[in-house]
Every structure is written in structure tokens, then in C-alpha cells.
Design a protein around this nucleic acid. Structure first.
Lengths: 249, 249
DNA sequence: GTTAACCGTGCACAAACGTGCAACTTCGTG
DNA sequence: CACGAAGTTGCACGTTTGTGCACGGTTAAC
């Protein structure tokens, strides 16, 4: 095992789990804890993580380089993204909707997992291609300025030809009474069409969406496989939602 | 065992395993570690991999050719872009290929001209949507990592359903003898298919392309409506090209 | 306040490194 | 065919780098 490779491995664990436990990694890789500690120290010196007792944690947002901060999701969204990525099985085909939470997901997609990512968002497509080694397929169609995703008749037709295992759906409103809603009629239709072509649909529920309602209905809560929320979100609305749909935190 | 053969072998191992351990390869091939180290050093100098203690690793994503090309357009490219935009009539539908020259075009597209821009490049799509008020249509399909445009069977099918007035074609080689060439087979096919669906095709000829030849032929010079070049480019090859195709400068 | 886990440091050893050099091959030239 | 120039290869050398272990100090948890 090359030292540089070990560091890559540490970076990956940090992205995936949000933390690194020195002892576990040492046992895992079959090297001494000393080596892992040394690696962690060097990565900390390079400003890639913060050293803590027992292992390491990601940089707090304030310490990150500015170019990263510009596109950075909130910590809540990152936790939702991490929980969502956990649902992805190797060799599967997933659809990523547009949005900051899905953008956060693109940064922590597993490498070498033989994934195919389908998306109606050019921004997501570029991010996935940059950060991982998955196949990327773009759903063609007219680009809606409101949401920057392809929609309309061309997109609807393209969607009819696809099939996927998982759909990570982004909406702007998640409410026990009004269900899942978004701000654009065409988008709502596209989201519905995609959901119909996927075995499972999970809704990404970062904190500001919970309890909110937008103009156009997308789906009912019963129509989706589950709702992924921030494990640290204590909003009581989540409990109300849990009576209607499976909630993952 | 020839040095070139050894290097091929190293490239292959790197692709397969994601790493190269100098010692293992040396034992495997029955040559000294010195030779392997020398090869690795040369490959690293050529920018094909990164040298690390004990062997070598693939290039980090940020160093790959696609990103290198995403740099700012030169002044020459901007002059070509300006000349190309002059060809666009109001209320028309145009196809923009990927590339730095077309990216420069997106910044100077006329406002309020009722244009529709079709593109296989997510980066171009985003740029157009950001800088102008045209309708934007993305050609769906699998995203080729080499060029960051959609290509393959899905894209080919999508192309069959479109029709446009103007196609601004980007290639990597424009040569009087070899015609128009590019570095990827799938891309070449997509470009050909798009050209067939457009009333006119113009090739964007920024200075470094003139007289260059890439691996895969796209079209003959007679197959396009014209070649747009930098008005300040005095390369004599342009005169040779002018005998075969209409040159706009 | 005790205890166990974790830490940094110093150290010894091994592995990998670059460099210079000599032996060898290849190829062109006289 | 002889010759030398240029390139390649393996070896020897001293140096640098990575690794694991032992030690004593520090931290967190009960």
C-alpha cells in the first residue's frame, strides 16, 4: 500500500462518513496506527481536515478555501446528502434532480462503484463528471430558466425511454397536508414522469423545505419510497410526515 | 523488452489497478527497478501520471485535459467568435458545439433576437442561459469524458429529431489534406449527424487548429458551408484551405 | 482521581530514491 | 567492416523517506 494511496483512502472515508477513526482505518488497511496518525497530521498541515482526539473531522465551513465556499451547501444539506448516498447500491442506475443537496451528493459519490447517473440538470452532470468516475447521461430537452433543468415535451419524451433504480427528487415544499410541491408547472410534470420510471423515489428534505408549500403539486407523500432528512433536524413537522411516509435520518 | 512497450504496460496497469508499484512491475517484467523508475519519471514528465513514493498514481481529476482546455479564450478565439456571431440572423435556430470558441460566442450572443440555441454541451447550455435570453435546448445522451459533450446512441437519436439553420462546428484539426478531424470517434459521429440536420455548417478555426490533424475524420472541407477564421491570422495554410472552402475572416 | 486509550517524539531499520558510471546495443557513417 | 555517437540498461553508492516500536506525556471517561 502506497502512502499516497492511503491518504486518498482517508480523504474518501472523510467525505463518505464525515469522520475518520485512526484505529479503525489502521486495522482495516493492516498498517500501524502510527502511519495513519502521521498521514492525518500531514493532511491537517495541508489544511484538508482537522485533527481531533481519536481521528479527524472535515474542515469547518469557515476554514475552507473560498472557491469551495461559493458552491458550498449548508451543513444540514451535507448531512442529508450523506444519508442519501448511503442508499445507493453498487452497479445501480440513479437519477439526480437539480438542487444544492444533489450537488452536495455529487461530491461524495463512491468511486469505482460502477454507477450510472441520469440527470436533467447540466450543472449536476458537469459536477458528477468532475468528481467521480460514473457514467453520466443527460436528459435532453429545453432548459427551463426557473430551475435550470431540462423540461417540456422533449424532456418528457426522453424520460419515457429511461429506467432507473433510484430517483433522488428535489422539491421546494414538503408538507403533511399539501404533499410535495414545487414552483414550476413544467418541472412538476417532469419530476412526476421521472418518478414513474424509477423503482424507488426518495425525496431530499433539507431543513428549509420541511413544512413549506409551493405552488404546484408534484406527488403525494404516499407516492414516494421515502424522505431523507437531516439526522440533526428536530422539526416536529417531521414526526407528522413520518405518519405518512418512511423517514430516513 | 522495449522501453515503449514497458510504458504501455505501465499505462495498462495504472488503468486496471489505479496504481503502479515499481517493485512489483520490475519483478514481473524481469527488469531492474531503475528502468521502471525511469519510465515512470518520463511518463510523469509527460503529464500522464503522478509519481509517488513507491510507484505512481493516475492524474487527479483536476489535472486532466478537459479542465486544461476550460481556460479562458485567447484573443484570437474571441475574434473568431465575433465573426461567427455576425452570421446569426434573428429568429433563427443555431447549434453550438462544445469548445472555448463557442463558449466565447455565448458571451456575445445578441439579446432580444428570438434565438434558439441547441447544444450537446452542458457547459455551453449553462453559459448561454446565463448570458442571454435565448431558448436553450440540450441534446440528451451519455456525457463523453473526453470532450464533455453528449454522444453515443442516445444523442444520435436525439439529433435525428432536431432541425436548425446554423451549426457552429468545433474540431481539433483543420487541414487542406486531411479535412476536419477530432480526437474521439463518437464525437466525430455526433458532429456529422448534427451537421446533416442543419441548413448550414460553419467551422470555427481558431489559430491552433489550422494545419493540425487529429485521429478521426469528421467531415470533408467540401461538406461545410464555410470556415470562420481569425481576421488577423496570416497562416499560409488558410490560403490553401480557401481553394477548397469559403473562408470568412 | 483513577484508568485506559490516545498522543507526540525519538530511534532503528528497511525500502525507495537520485546520481554517476560502466557495459551493452543500435544505428549511421566512413 | 570498422568506427564512433547516441541511447539504453543495470549496478554501486550515498541520501532521503516511510515504517513500526518503545517511551513518557496528555486526554477523556467513568
Amino acid at each position: 500500500m502506497l502512502s499516497a494511496q492511503r491518504k486518498d483512502h482517508l480523504r474518501q472515508i472523510l467525505r463518505r462518513d464525515g469522520r475518520v477513526v485512526a484505529k479503525d482505518v489502521a486495522t482495516d488497511l493492516g498498517v500501524s496506527e502510527d502511519s495513519i496518525r502521521r498521514d492525518l497530521r500531514e493532511l491537517a498541515d495541508a489544511g484538508e481536515l482537522v485533527r481531533v482526539y481519536g481521528g479527524a473531522l472535515p474542515l469547518p465551513p469557515a476554514d475552507r478555501p473560498v472557491d469551495q465556499r461559493a458552491t458550498l451547501a449548508t451543513e444540514s444539506k451535507e448531512r442529508v446528502a450523506r444519508r442519501a448516498v448511503d442508499l445507493i447500491r453498487p452497479s445501480s442506475t440513479i437519477v439526480l434532480d437539480a438542487g444544492t443537496t444533489t450537488l452536495a451528493m455529487t461530491r461524495i459519490l463512491p468511486h469505482g462503484a460502477d454507477l450510472t447517473v441520469i440527470t436533467p440538470s447540466p450543472a449536476i452532470a458537469l459536477a458528477v463528471a468532475e468528481h467521480s468516475d460514473t457514467r453520466v447521461v443527460i436528459i435532453g430537452g429545453e432548459l427551463a430558466r426557473f430551475s435550470m433543468v431540462t423540461s417540456g415535451p422533449l424532456a418528457m419524451e426522453a424520460v419515457q425511454h429511461l429506467a432507473a433504480d433510484l430517483f433522488f427528487l428535489g422539491v421546494t415544499g414538503i408538507d403533511p397536508g399539501h404533499g410535495l410541491t414545487t414552483g414550476n408547472l413544467d418541472d412538476a410534470a417532469t419530476k412526476r414522469a421521472i418518478s414513474a420510471r424509477c423503482a424507488q423515489t426518495y425525496v431530499l428534505g433539507s431543513e428549509e423545505k420541511i413544512g413549506a408549500t409551493s405552488r404546484y403539486p408534484v406527488l403525494d407523500l404516499d407516492d414516494v419510497s421515502g424522505l431523507v432528512v437531516d439526522p440533526l433536524d428536530t422539526n416536529p413537522v417531521i414526526d407528522a410526515l413520518a405518519e405518512r411516509v418512511s423517514v430516513l435520518r
